[in-house]
Design a binder for these strands. Sequence first.
DNA 1: TACGCAGTGATATGTTATAACACTTCTGGG
DNA 2: CCCAGAAGTGTTATAACATATCACTGCGTA
Lengths: 134, 134
Amino acid sequence: MTHAERADLRLTPVRRRVLEILLESHAAMGAYDILARLKADGLGDQPPVVYRALSYLVEHGLAHRIERLNAFVACARPEDAHDPAFMICRTCRSVHESTVATPLDHAARASGFEIERTVIEAEGLCPACQEPAP
Amino acid sequence: MTHAERADLRLTPVRRRVLEILLESHAAMGAYDILARLKADGLGDQPPVVYRALSYLVEHGLAHRIERLNAFVACARPEDAHDPAFMICRTCRSVHESTVATPLDHAARASGFEIERTVIEAEGLCPACQEPAP
DNA sequence: TACGCAGTGATATGTTATAACACTTCTGGG
DNA sequence: CCCAGAAGTGTTATAACATATCACTGCGTA
Ligand SMILES: [Zn+2]
Ligand SMILES: [Zn+2]
Ligand SMILES: [Zn+2]
Ligand SMILES: [Zn+2]
């Protein structure tokens, strides 16, 4: 059973539409970009509308927040909970999701720090944007 | 020779004061918190003042930006260039800087992505904030 | 002097995010 | 059915973070 099929998931119209918008985009989207799309669909035009929907989707593992971009992306593997890792193209803003062992485990144990979540976001050029020198 | 001693470093009064403020704080500070301190010192009271100084310090390796917090912290090891990794306490906002091998190297090579920089920020509880259950 | 450059001052604006409160809809227990 | 609480939404306002732009100053140098 995937996350998306869980009985306690409440995908209301706004939440469903936000998830669809993210799934269609194949790239990270800012909250206000999403809001503009919602507004066009008559589903709300104030910031809290989109932020509430995004919070819900992120909490339930259907979307992730990209800290580097202050933006959001649909989860590539909503089946199971995970700390995501991303490779973000600085040119086309495309995002590739991946998974990775938390690299700070050792340092955390050594210093007594208790890690709850780790943000891992690599930035660079995706294959398509690596132009041959002009 | 440390970064801070490099001849081409131009630590103007505003830049120097911002660095001092960061060094005194032992925690991540928002740009507007820093700006309030600058204003108290008569060194400028408009956002561009502090953002220009912070950009300079970050570019020259004397400070880092914490993406998770949209905030800034003095570099713990300005001697040499590095991709920093952080452990951030969600309670007291203290930041511990560390270094770590880039964990996405393998995935990047496999997919042809060219990594330029990697953000690694763990969030959790520092030793001091791990209260015994009340 | 004239020029170019780095830094700064100042104004305005753009972008991202949340607080607060009212109202509606859903849901379970009596 | 009726009610009470929980969850969701509408709406207004504001907080917090960041940049564009243009003018001006001081300084090194041709
Ligand atoms: Zn995911
Ligand atoms: Zn690209
Ligand atoms: Zn550092
Ligand atoms: Zn702490």
